[in-house]
Design a protein around this nucleic acid. Structure first.
Length: 476
RNA sequence: CGGGGCGUAGCGCAGUCUGGUUAGCGCGCCUGGUUCGGGACCAGGAGGUCGGAGGUUCGAAUCCUCUCGCCCCGACCA
C-alpha cells in the first residue's frame, strides 16, 4: 500500500484503477481480462451476498447450483439468446486429452441449462412456482475489461423462476427489482432510477427487462441490476409445459434476474474519494478500526483503556484493533482511509485522561469526542447518520447532474460538457434511439417508472411523445 | 481489431538516443536503536543473468530481427 492515489480531477480512469489496486480490493491476474479479488474486495462482496441472500430467502427463494458447462446444442435452442451471446462465449473443445463430441460453452448465464432441468421437474401447476437462485461465476469474453466493472470472469447471482401465469412472472420480476432498489439505496447508499429498458437495450430473449440505473461521479450511468420477464420464450425453446387447474397444457412463464461484482465498481464510483474507498456503514464488513496512540510513558494506560473500549465495541460492532508497533498513527490513518472503513476511533493519552475516544468519520473526516459511558449509543447514532448522509450526498449529486432537454443540439452540448442523466422525449422508435446512440454514444438507460405524464416531441423526429421523458446517458 | 504507452529488485522508475568497470535511485522488506495526536528518523543489510528467442560485436539493458505479455483510449457488452 502506501502509494499515492491519482486525484479524480487529474485522471478519473487512473483514479479508479488506483483505488482498486492501492486499496487492495483486486489485482490483475496472469490471465488477460481476469482479476483476483483480494480479501478487501471480497469482504464487500460477502456482505452484498449476505444481505441480498437474506432478502431473496425472505421472499421465498432458495439457492441451488447448476453446472459451469453448457452443451453447445442448448445454447442454440433459443435463437435470440444465442445471437445475443455467441460472440462473447468461451468454448471448451477438449477434455481428458481428447476432442469432445460436442463442445461445451462456459456459461455466460444459465438460462439454457436451468430450463433444460426445469423441463424434468415441472409437470403440473402444483410444481409452480419454482423460485431458484444461484451464486456463481460466469464468463463473457469481453473486448475491453475493467476491474470489477467488466471482467472476463465475474461473480454474480442469477435467479431463475418459473410461474404459471404471465402476471405472476411479471410480479416476480418487479418484486426482485424492488429488492435491488432497496439494496442499492439502503445498503450501498447509492440512489438509483428504477425503470424499464427499451427494446434495443433489453436482454436477448426477454419480454421485458427492468433495471436499476445509477449515476457515477464522472457523469456516466451504470446499470447496477437487471430483472427480466422472459415470458414463455425459454419454455417454448425447451418445451417446458405444465397442466393447469383446468386441465389445459401450457408453457411456463419465466423470469431471470441478477447482480454481479460490478456492484463493487458501482460502490467505488459512487462514494470513493481522493483518499480511497468509502464504504457505507451498513455494507462494511469492518465498521470500525481502533487506533491507539501512545508514547513510551503512556503506553500502558493507553493500551489498558483501548482494550477496555475494544471489548465493549466488539459486542455491538464489527471492529478491528490496529496496535501494530511499527507504524505511526498517521500512517495507519491513511492506510485505513484507503480501505474505506467507515469509522476510525483514535485513543491517545489525552482521551484516556478525559475518559473518552475520538470518533472520525471516513466520508467527511468529521471528528467527534465520545465519552465511554455513551460509547455504543453514540456510535450507533454516528453510523446511522453517516449512512443517511452518504445517500443524501449521492442523491444530491444525481439530481444536480440530471438535466432536461428538448433540443437535440442542446442535448449534445450537455452530454459533451456535463454528462449525467438527460431527460428527454422519445417517440419510441428504434431508429431514433439508434441515431442518438450512433451520433452521441448516449443510450436510453431507462424508461423510469416514476415520471411525469407530459406531452412532448421526440428529440430526433419530432413525433409525439405523450407518456413522458426517458433517461439518456453515456454508460459504463 | 484500430490508436497510444510500457516491460530493468516486491512496487515505482533512471540508465537505452551515443554499446565499455561490479546495472543505479526512491519506496517497501530484514536487523538494531530512537520515535509515535495525519504517511517518523538514524545505522547496517538482503534482493535484479534488464519480458523471451535469435543475431551483430572483442564486448549488448543499450544496436538489428522476430516473439510474448500488460496497461490506457476507441468500436462490443452486465
Amino acid at each position: 500500500m502506501a502509494e499515492r492515489i491519482t486525484p479524480r480531477s487529474e485522471d478519473f480512469g487512473r483514479w479508479y484503477t488506483d483505488l482498486v489496486i492501492q486499496g487492495q480490493l483486486a489485482d490483475y491476474s496472469p490471465v488477460k481480462g481476469c482479476m483476483v479479488i483480494r480479501p478487501n474486495g471480497y469482504a464487500i462482496w460477502e456482505r452484498m451476498q449476505q444481505v441480498l441472500d437474506n432478502m431473496f430467502k425472505e421472499t421465498g427463494h432458495v439457492n441451488a447450483y447448476f453446472p459451469l458447462f453448457i452443451p453447445e446444442s442448448f445454447m442454440k435452442k433459443e435463437a435470440e439468446h444465442v445471437e445475443g451471446f455467441a460472440p462473447e462465449c468461451a468454448i471448451v473443445t477438449h477434455g481428458g486429452g481428447e476432442k469432445l463430441e460436442e463442445p461445451l460453452y462456459v456459461r455466460p448465464t444459465s438460462e439454457t441449462i436451468i430450463w433444460s432441468m426445469y423441463k424434468k421437474w415441472i409437470m403440473s401447476y402444483r410444481d409452480l412456482p419454482i423460485l431458484i437462485n444461484q451464486w456463481a461465476n460466469v464468463v463473457r469474453w469481453e473486448m475491453r475489461t475493467r476491474l470489477f466493472l467488466r471482467t472476463t470472469e465475474f461473480l454474480w447471482q442469477e435467479g431463475h423462476t418459473a410461474h404459471s401465469t404471465f402476471e405472476e412472472a411479471e410480479e416476480e420480476t418487479l418484486k426482485i427489482l424492488e429488492i435491488y432498489r432497496k439494496f442499492a439505496e439502503e445498503y450501498m447508499a447509492m440512489p438509483v432510477i428504477v425503470g424499464r429498458k427499451s427494446e434495443a437495450e433489453k436482454f436477448a430473449g426477454a419480454k421485458h427487462t427492468y433495471s436499476i440505473e445509477a449515476l457515477m461521479q464522472d457523469g456516466k450511468a451504470l446499470q447496477a441490476g437487471t430483472s427480466h420477464n422472459l415470458g414463455q420464450n425459454f419454455a417454448r425453446a425447451f418445451d417446458v409445459t405444465f397442466q393447469d387447474k383446468d386441465g389445459s397444457v401450457k408453457h411456463v412463464y419465466a423470469t431471470s434476474w441478477g447482480v454481479s461484482t460490478r456492484l463493487i465498481g458501482a460502490l467505488l464510483l459512487t462514494h470513493g474519494d481522493d483518499s480511497g474507498v468509502v464504504i457505507p456503514p451498513r455494507l462494511a464488513q469492518t465498521q470500525i478500526v481502533v487506533i491507539p496512540i501512545w508514547q513510551e510513558a503512556t503506553r500502558q494506560p493507553v493500551f489498558d483503556f483501548t482494550n477496555r473500549v475494544f471489548r465493549q465495541l466488539q459486542d455491538h460492532f464489527s471492529v478491528k484493533l490496529d496496535d501494530r508497533d511499527q507504524y505511526k498513527p498517521g500512517y495507519k490513518f491513511t492506510e485505513w482511509e484507503m480501505v474505506g472503513v467507515p469509522l476510525r476511533i483514535e485513543i491517545g493519552p489525552r482521551d484516556v485522561e478525559n475518559n473518552q475516544v475520538m470518533v472520525v468519520r471516513r466520508d467527511n473526516r468529521s471528528k467527534t469526542p465520545v465519552g465511554i459511558d455513551e460509547l455504543v449509543t453514540r456510535i450507533e447514532q454516528i453510523l446511522t447518520v453517516m449512512q443517511q448522509e452518504m445517500y443524501q450526498r449521492a442523491l444530491d449529486f444525481q439530481k444536480a447532474n440530471t438535466h432536461r432537454s428538448d433540443n437535440y443540439q442542446e442535448f449534445k452540448r450537455i452530454l459533451e460538457e456535463k454528462g449525467g442523466f438527460i431527460e428527454a422525449h422519445w417517440c419510441g422508435s428504434a431508429e431514433c434511439e439508434e441515431k442518438i446512440k450512433d451520433e452521441t454514444k448516449a443510450t436510453i438507460r431507462t424508461i423510469p417508472f416514476q415520471r411525469e405524464i407530459e406531452a412532448g416531441n421526440c428529440l430526433i423526429c419530432g413525433k409525439d411523445s405523450d407518456d413522458g421523458r426517458v433517461i439518456f446517458a453515456k454508460a459504463y
